[in-house]
Amino acid sequence: MATLRKKGFVNKVTIHVLLIIGALLSVFPLYWMFVMATQPNHVINKLPPAVVPGDKLTENFQNVLANIDFFGAMWNSFVVASVTTIGVLFFCSLAGFAFAKLQFKGREKLFTVILITMMIPPQLGLIPQYFIITKLGWLNDLKAIIVLGLMNAFGIFWMRQYIKDAIPDELIEAAKIDGCSIFRIYWNIVVPSILPAFATLGILTFMFVWNDFLWPLTVLRDESSYTIQIAIRALQDAYVRDYGMILSGTFWATLPLIVVFLIFNKLFISSLMQGSVKQ
């Protein structure tokens, strides 16, 4: 019995040590991004490499501001991500409600079409999309990102699954008999009962749009329209490659989302777990 307990203790210590090493490796690049954001550029060629913060935090960030319109780009990202998220939540819950609770002909077939569109790689239509946006005069316009972002098949799928289980059919029938219009039923009954689904889909959408790169890189060519991802990529192309400056921009661009994640981490992680299991 004593040896068994001892073995259990050794196991417990080993597993914790391994998990801690892994966790440190996982967090280290982010910590190190902060370290480099506080160091002068020449540190990059110094042995041994710097692993503690230096004193160039503000200076590096001032250099960032001299090279790119950092706050403008952050604002663009914020606008694009918020507007897309609100739009996605509205349109996807509306369509999800229709697919889950309203009877109409071809419902299942149309839902299958939605599922199929989820499988198509987004790169397939990239080039014609670019020319459509050009024709519409939306090049360098945040509309180009928002409108395409609203086309969210996953969101409809996700909302349909949730609404199907969350709201009893009887409730909707009763409301109909009381003379509620369908939109009223959506607004007064469906919306208040699917707030957790809004939180999940909202987080996933916001994160996706905030971090998106390929499409913004393609249609946002003018600096005033850059999202933060495109702006920090532009730092790399600056005349002088100052890594303290580049990593300072990267650090400050990354920080807001990490802070939000740390505050709402339970919600983030549980959202994701539900999302994957439902599929």
Partner: peptide, 23 residues
């Protein structure tokens, strides 16, 4: 642990690629 292992996924690919360029 979950937070520590999950946090890289919140980081944008652009940021990751820049940090790894220097690493």
């Amino acid at each position: 642990f979950r937070v520590a292992y999950f946090v890289p996924n919140v980081t944008s690919i652009v940021a990751v690629a820049i940090v790894f360029t220097v690493l």
